[in-house]
Design a protein around this nucleic acid. Structure first.
Length: 354
DNA sequence: AAGACGGGGCC
DNA sequence: GGCCCAGTCTT
């Protein structure tokens, strides 16, 4: 690290001392790190999502499973249900697999980036972040915030994702040996509150003086990104099947396969919309079906128009594998948002009919 | 190297 | 409607 890089990290850390965000999984600047379990849990939850979305889930998980060994001992379906709505459900499957590996090691997380990287669900970013934040190891932590800050600081013209190695090199040159965790979190806070994607607030930025993009006059131009591919549109159907058991209405839920879209999650039966574009599926039971409405939902690589169909009457037996779930406890089923939306439609339709 | 993989908030 | 976000895994 040369003199100007020292200036950059020193300026950033001084700014962080005064402006760090107060977050549930975080220790204040300059203080001992939080428990590795909490750092790891928050970092996995934060992958590809936002602080606001994670807070409630972090509170629920740490309340339900205060230690990694308790999470390791939890039932898969309880963890998946607790994760429902947060998305990218492979993260929850890897979270549980990782907790169980750590529990098998005696409940202690490895304390080096290299060893952390071998755990399920810990890629380059998360291994570096946990090493830095939980264990104060020097590690080059590069997330979307850091990509934005570094690409502006050095005015990197190469477009993402091809610019990743160049950005990583830039991050490496400014990462200090001391206060690695604070530095990593400072970069993220700067990206989240000052060096924002739209309308960066350069007047408040501790790095505005050395920033090449700022000098160039149009910092928001960075990072340069490759054009996105168009999202295909799909159509499909979901089925709402009910039965009264002991005077309580139950709805038929299935469990989705362990891999693929919404993998391992409880769901309404559907027609396999994943593979369809025409929206013409076979109903799982014979009978009189009634349209309950339509859900529009956008996934990462396609959008879906899901038509919800209700079966009139009281079914004696559900189709295939599944379970009758009491309607008054449907919130506990842990339906992913797509099916939670579909269920809301069906419930509203049933209440109208009643 | 490219694609699969959620969801919500903002403009 | 498009863009963005504390990325990882598979092929």
């Amino acid at each position: 690290m040369d003199a100007s890089s020292e200036t950059i990290s020193a300026r950033l850390l001084a700014w962080y001392d005064a402006h760090a965000r107060d977050l549930p999984w975080r220790a204040p600047p300059g203080s001992p790190p939080p428990e590795p379990y909490r750092v790891w849990l928050s970092e996995v939850m934060l992958q590809q999502t936002t602080v606001a979305a994670v807070k409630e889930y972090f509170a629920k998980f740490t309340r339900t499973w205060p230690e990694v060994t308790q999470l390791a001992a939890a039932r898969d379906e309880d963890v998946m249900a607790a994760w429902a709505g947060l998305g990218y459900y492979a993260r929850a499957r890897n979270l549980l697999a990782c907790a169980r590996e750590v529990a098998a090691r005696g409940g202690t997380f490895p304390d080096t980036e290299e060893e952390l990287r071998k755990l399920p669900g810990l890629g380059a970013y998360t291994a570096a972040a946990v090493a830095a934040i939980a264990f104060d190891r020097r590690a080059v932590v590069v997330d979307a915030n850091v990509e934005r800050v570094v690409s502006r600081l050095f005015a990197i013209e190469r477009e993402l994702p091809a610019a990743r190695p160049e950005i990583r090199d830039g991050a490496e040159t400014i990462t200090p040996d001391a206060r690695a965790g604070d530095f990593a979190q400072a970069m993220m806070d700067l990206g989240a509150t000052v060096c924002t994607a739209r309308d960066p607030r350069c007047l408040l930025c501790p790095l505005s003086e050395p920033c090449a993009a700022r000098a160039g006059g149009d910092p928001a131009r960075f990072p340069v990104k490759a054009p996105k591919k168009a999202k295909p549109a799909r159509k499909g159907r979901a089925y709402w099947i009910t039965r009264a058991i002991g005077g309580r209405t139950h709805v038929w839920l299935v469990q989705r396969p362990g891999s693929g879209m919404l993998g391992g999650m409880r769901a309404l039966p559907d027609d396999g919309w994943k593979a369809r574009t025409d929206g013409h599926g076979e109903a799982p039971l014979a009978g009189t079906w009634q349209a309950a409405g339509r859900v529009n939902h956008v996934f990462t690589h396609f959008s879906l128009e899901l038509h919800v169909e209700m079966l009139a009457g009281n079914v004696a037996q559900g189709p295939g594998e599944g379970e009758w779930w009491p309607l008054d406890h449907l919130d506990d089923a842990g339906l992913p948002t797509l099916f939670a939306k579909a269920a809301r439609l069906a419930v509203a339709m049933q209440e109208d009919a009643a």
